[in-house]
Design a protein around this nucleic acid. Structure first.
Length: 972
DNA sequence: ACCGCCGGGTGCC
DNA sequence: ACCGCCGGGTGCC
């Protein structure tokens, strides 16, 4: 039994600690403040230990926070403390205040902390024999250049920084060894960079936690699950339902103890209901998640969904009759009133009548309060409201409400509900005591726009046709923003962009207590500074899931924090504890730290690869995939034009390199390369745009605003069309609604608008030039290209077109039913290809980034159809979909031009080489011989090797490294 | 706090 | 009595 000590011997303090609501809410706001401060905490990767010293925590008796022997404590500056502006507050892992650092020491530390000369961390190694103060060991960490200043400053105040922990060595607990072994003398041999990289690569390999169980989906799921999907379902249900403690927590007697921070508490730590499902693409994460939603509602029961014979539309209304109800409901906050507003402005279909506040007699609805009609769970916007109504109903005995808890206890069919109304009333009373919050009902799915339609399809596809859960697509300007409405759905689907643009305004999504939030492609929130990451963190939910194709981390252990924070994995959702306990030890090669990280990840992640096996059998057997490279020879005339352009480009770029102005002329350099790549495909791709943009033009040269605007538009077009996979530096995602600044950097409009509005004097995140909203330039509305210029009458062929058509004609003669994807980065090339396709009688569809979501869905459906007259060819723009698109009807892929990023090509191929593909897949990559394309392929290979070798060093500036690519490409 | 510090009461033994 | 000594009140920042 570990020696447990409480700093309060007297019971009254314990009582205060446990039962005082006041202190609870104070602690809540305090921990929020700490969390806010901690989110700004830098990674402090290169920090070294300056030394340690022993200090004293005083004033323990005034606060409720408790600390155990060996526990880490937080140190928070309190510059506004009315008694001492140097005050340093001490908190425990939960953020509860423990005391203060004694003022003399605090005065010395304040200077160090306020000037960020060092980060100070505290650990309480030994107990105290009184209830007024206790010793604390403080470690000062920072970058080497500040060491002297810190040591001197502390010394001048009479505090000597010791290398060995200020005499704490003798009393060091095992935790001290664990955290500091690499900081002090080499007790253990640190991991080599190589070992670390390997360990890190394998972090997400084959985390098949749930070998033990399989679970069948609810009967409303029509598609039979594969064995590995049943495993996943079983694991996910267990993660949601079981009361297992989070990793590193254990029960010790009456207390819950965290073995990493040594924190212990009487209250059970908040459990992580959810985790990371990181299966490889094609293993059916979407289906599994749908199965989870349908199978695991409250208390492990399936989601009650409507069964109807002549199946259509909404669930039947559920009635509430209550005389007192309206008065109570009138106390509702904005939610209720908002509904009314929407109702009055006619946004709702007349199927629904909403309860409304009764206080205003002008409200037409209050005229007849006796009978209020609402769809299922309309009144459960907040738990308070729910219970209020519940109470009303129970006490007055007018029970006609389908209570959620009640519904949960039933099997799916509604017909059974009627005889059990008395139980519903009992349930009402019970519910208040239950720890589970049953008011939450809806699952929110957040995904990239590209997979939005996929989710809808899959709900349609995998459910029994007579089962209609309420699935609402929260997207588009007409979206229904009513919280009451949204929280009454079974499933709400939205995109990261909608989520982050709603965030900051009065986001209904953030006002709802979700049953479950699912982040699809969840690795997109890895940057904690990005707006959409912040928005995701603020969602309220009982269960949280991250779906991720493959390992959700890219470069380093840092990427993991955001995921753990989203999952609310205590205590690591506060950055400081993550840094101290996991990130710094791992980066510094601490084996124990790595071990802890592995344990952590293993507990919350399920990941299988396409190659994983269950009982010696592959999870899924995908058909074979073969990739061919077909070399294309340019005709004599094409070669001549190409060489001309190449020589000119070499000269220009050579000059830029000599001047050192490559970065400044980035767009021009891309333009030159682009032109060469376009020549490789088809001469008509080089529109007047590229020709106009002579490389000697500079944005700096004075010209009319119209000219400037025009040139900025051209630059933006080039940057976006370059196929170089530009991402917005604010949200780190692909650029949507592009705008270009006067300093010629391209961002998403909402992202940069946010930046500008958040600062007095906004600066470009890339070059720090001053920027204004009024100076953002976007594409003119008539932008839709003069496609005519490449249309039929003046049409000519090219070697690459010939190569493709040869293949297509041959394939058609072999197999009429065969479907092909024809992929290019240049939408104009797709347009060029339409002519010969039409000429040879191919039926085809086209999918590119300019299409609306609705149109996309329609086209994909058309292409996927097995009807005899369905399209044989899809012209696909490489960047049109991103991951997730399902194009399994095709089994041949033609990649018309190489991409900078080989992963983009892989993703594209995987759209048809995935679960559901029944034929062998053959991929043909066209590469023009002796051209920029061949060099691009070489660079692709080199890059891949580099990525495989280097670990953590991939953070080199993307643009600089691309300029090295460019130099290599042109051999300058 | 079984401390230190403060300030009032007190004053040979 | 401009001290010492005693004992009660008191105590984070």
């Amino acid at each position: 039994m570990f020696s447990r000590w409480w700093k309060f011997g007297r019971d009254r303090f314990t009582d205060v600690d446990l039962f005082s609501d006041g202190s609870e809410s104070a602690a809540e706001t305090l921990s929020q403040a700490i969390r806010a401060a901690a989110s700004q905490e830098p990674d402090a990767d290169g920090s070294v230990l300056f030394g340690q010293l022993r200090g004293t925590v005083v004033g323990l008796r005034y606060y409720t926070g408790v600390v155990n022997r060996g526990e880490m404590v937080g140190l928070v500056r309190e510059p506004h403390n009315p008694y001492d502006k140097n005050a340093v507050m001490v908190t425990n892992v939960l953020g509860r205040q423990v005391g203060h650092i004694r003022k003399e020491l605090a005065a010395a530390m304040a200077h160090v902390m306020d000037n960020s000369l060092a980060k100070v961390e505290g650990v309480v190694y030994s107990g105290t024999n009184n209830s007024f103060s206790m010793p604390v060991t403080l470690s000062f960490l920072g970058s080497e250049e500040n060491r002297d200043a810190v040591v001197k400053h502390m010394a001048s105040r009479g505090f000597r920084l010791d290398a060995d922990g200020g005499g704490a060595a003798g009393t060091r607990s095992p935790l001290g060894d664990l955290v500091f072994c690499t900081l002090t003398s080499g007790v253990t041999i640190p991991l080599t960079a190589e070992e670390l990289k390997n360990a890190f690569d394998n972090l997400f390999e084959d985390l098949m936690e749930s070998k033990d169980g399989e679970k069948e989906a609810a009967e409303s799921v029509a598609t039979p699950l594969l064995p590995h999907q049943k495993q996943a379902l079983s694991w996910m249900c267990a993660r949601e339902n079981k009361d297992a403690l989070p990793p590193f927590w254990e029960k010790r007697g009456d207390l819950y103890y965290n073995s990493l921070t040594c924190f212990s508490a009487k209250e059970i730590p908040e459990r992580v209901r959810g985790g990371i499902l990181a299966d490889d693409m094609g293993l059916g994460k979407t289906l599994t998640t749908i199965a989870l939603i349908l199978t695991n509602f409250h208390k492990g029961k399936p989601l009650p969904v409507e069964r109807c014979v002549s199946c259509h539309v909404e669930s039947p209304p559920h009635f509430i009759q209550s005389k007192g109800g309206r008065d109570r409901r009138s106390r509702r906050g904005a939610g209720g009133r908002k509904v009314r507003t929407n109702l009055q402005s006619g946004h709702f279909s007349s199927n629904y009548v909403y309860p409304a506040p009764a206080k205003r007699s002008t409200n037409p609805l209050s005229a007849n309060p006796a009978k209020v009609q609402a769809p299922l769970n309309l009144l459960t916007a907040t738990r308070a409201v729910d219970e209020e109504i519940c109470n009303t109903v129970c006490t007055e005995g007018l029970v006609l409400l389908e209570d959620l808890g009640f519904a949960a206890a039933l099997s799916c069919t509604m017909s059974e509900t009627k005889p059990k109304k008395k139980k519903a009333a009992e349930k009402c009373k019970l519910k208040q005591k239950s720890t589970d919050d049953l008011s939450a009902k809806a699952t929110l799915i957040v995904c990239p726009l590209s997979v939005l339609s996929n989710w809808l399809d899959q709900f349609e596809q995998h459910l029994r046709s007579d089962v209609k859960p309420n699935v609402y697509l929260y997207y588009g300007s007409e979206r229904n923003r009513s919280k009451t409405f949204l929280s009454s759905q079974d499933v709400v689907i939205t995109t990261y962009n909608v989520l982050s643009s709603d965030f900051g305004n009065t986001s209904p999504l953030h006002g709802i207590n979700w049953l479950r939030v699912v982040l699809d492609e969840g690795h997109v929130i890895r940057n904690p500074n990005a707006q959409m990451s912040k928005a995701a963190l603020k969602l309220k939910a009982q269960r949280r899931w991250i779906l991720s194709a493959g390992t959700p981390i890219q470069n380093s252990v840092k990427d993991l924090w955001m995921l753990l924070a989203f999952l609310r994995l205590k205590p690591f959702d506060v950055r400081e504890w993550w840094n101290r306990v996991i990130q710094r030890p791992v980066i510094q090669g601490d084996r124990a730290g790595l071990q802890n990280l592995q344990t952590l990840v293993k507990c919350i992640t399920l990941r299988r690869t396409k190659n994983s096996e269950v009982n010696g059998r592959r999870l899924v057997s995908l058909p074979k995939k073969t990739v061919y490279v077909e070399q294309v020879e340019l005709s004599a005339q094409e070669r001549e034009e190409y060489e001309l352009a190449r020589n000119e480009g070499r000269r220009t770029i050579g000059r830029y390199v000599a001047e050192g102005s490559v970065l400044k002329n980035y767009a021009d350099v891309l333009a030159i390369l682009m032109r060469l790549r376009q020549y490789c495909c088809h001469p008509d791709l080089i529109g007047k745009i590229a020709a106009d943009l002579a490389p000697h033009h500079h944005a700096a040269s004075a010209d009319t605003p119209a000219e400037l605007r025009q040139r900025l538009v051209e630059k933006m077009r080039l940057v976006l069309a370059s196929g170089s996979d530009e991402e917005c530096s604010v949200c780190l995602d692909s650029i949507r609604m592009p705008v270009i600044t006067h300093c010629a950097h391209v961002y998403c409009r909402p992202c940069i608008a946010q930046v500008i509005s958040s600062e007095q004097k906004a600066r470009c995140p890339l070059c720090r030039s001053e920027i204004k909203t009024s100076e953002l330039v976007e594409f003119p509305p008539e932008e839709m290209e003069d496609e005519k210029s490449v249309e039929s009458d003046r049409w000519r062929t090219s070697s690459k077109v010939q190569a493709l058509m040869g293949n297509l004609l041959r394939l058609r003669s072999e197999d009429v039913g065969l479907k092909c994807l024809v992929v290019s980065q240049f939408t104009r090339f797709l347009t060029v290809l339409q002519t010969p396709l039409r000429e040879h009688g191919f039926s085809f569809v086209r999918l590119d980034g300019t299409m609306s979501q609705k149109k996309r869905t329609q086209i994909i459906q058309e292409f996927q159809s097995s009807a005899a007259d369905s399209p044989r060819v899809m012209l696909l723009s490489l960047k049109a979909g991103g991951v997730g698109l399902n194009l399994t009807a095709a089994s041949r892929v033609f990649l018309m031009d190489p991409a900078w990023n080989p992963a983009t090509e892989e993703q594209c191929i995987d759209r048809c080489h995935r679960l559901g593909q029944e034929r062998n897949v053959v991929v043909t990559k066209f590469i023009v011989k002796d051209s920029v394309e061949e060099n691009m392929v070489k660079i692709q290979k080199k890059k891949q090797d580099l990525v495989e070798k280097a670990f953590g060093s991939a953070s080199t500036d993307r643009k600089t490294s691309r300029i090295d690519d460019i130099r290599a490409l042109l051999e300058v």
